Simulated scan of single mutants.
Amino acid sequence: MNIYKFGQFVCRVFFKTFFRVTVVSKHNVPESGPVLLCSNHISNLDPPLVGAFLPRHMAFLAKGELFSFKPFGVLLHALGAVPIKRGGGDRQALKAGLGVLKENQGLVMFPEGTRSKTGELGEGLAGAGFFATRSDATVVPCAVVGKYRPFAKIKVIYGRPIPMDDLREGKSSSSEATERIMAHIAHVKANGDTPYIEERE
């Protein structure tokens, strides 16, 4: 068992011990090829929860400061975290995330960029759309539903892949792509793993 699998095991034990976790439709996440998994963000526990129950290795973007203590930095690297420096980190984050996808790996990101204090879905940042339109990754919406209270019910739902070909072929903006991703996350959060029907005028 490698360190990533061991980390997943520890996280699964933690979540199953302290919360009543339900995992819905993880089969929607391809087990191979580039995958961009986009989720809502309500807690610092979201990244390990979202990644713990998937059968594949997933990478995460993380603040560079977390890697300053070398033993912990080595562990984070082993667990799939990609360090991003503060300041001019946007360009670095985009380059690092795109590199993960071009290597046919999985990348987890939270398009809101910060945790929601109310639990309501906020506005998505353009980075998610950038990764979606600049790569061939399968884009999967995800929603964490519930509250991280001891022994409370919490659900992680992996939605159906989002169609992106029209946006890629039409060279749509990153913001347009992010809007679609956020609409699908909102649908998964409200309706679970049901087909998304885009409203058209």
Rank of each mutant, 00 (worst) to 15 (best):
M1V: 11
F6L: 13
Q8D: 01
V10E: 01
C11S: 15
C11H: 05
R12N: 04
F15M: 06
F15R: 08
T17S: 15
T17C: 14
F19A: 09
R20M: 10
V21T: 14
N28P: 01
V29F: 02
S32R: 13
G33E: 01
S39P: 04
N40A: 03
H41P: 08
I42A: 13
S43R: 13
L45M: 15
P48S: 13
A52M: 10
L61E: 03
S68Y: 12
K70Y: 10
P71N: 05
P71C: 04
F72Q: 06
H77F: 09
A78W: 00
V82A: 12
P83I: 03
G88P: 02
R91P: 00
Q92F: 01
G97S: 00
L101N: 00
F110M: 07
F110K: 06
R115S: 09
R115V: 08
K117G: 08
G119H: 02
T133D: 02
V139A: 09
A143P: 03
K147V: 13
Y148N: 10
I154C: 06
Y158H: 05
G159M: 06
R160G: 03
P163Y: 05
D165S: 14
D166I: 14
K171Y: 00
S173Q: 00
A177R: 02
A183H: 02
A186L: 10
A186Y: 00
V188Q: 01
A190M: 06
N191W: 05
D193E: 11
P195A: 08
Y196I: 07
E201V: 15
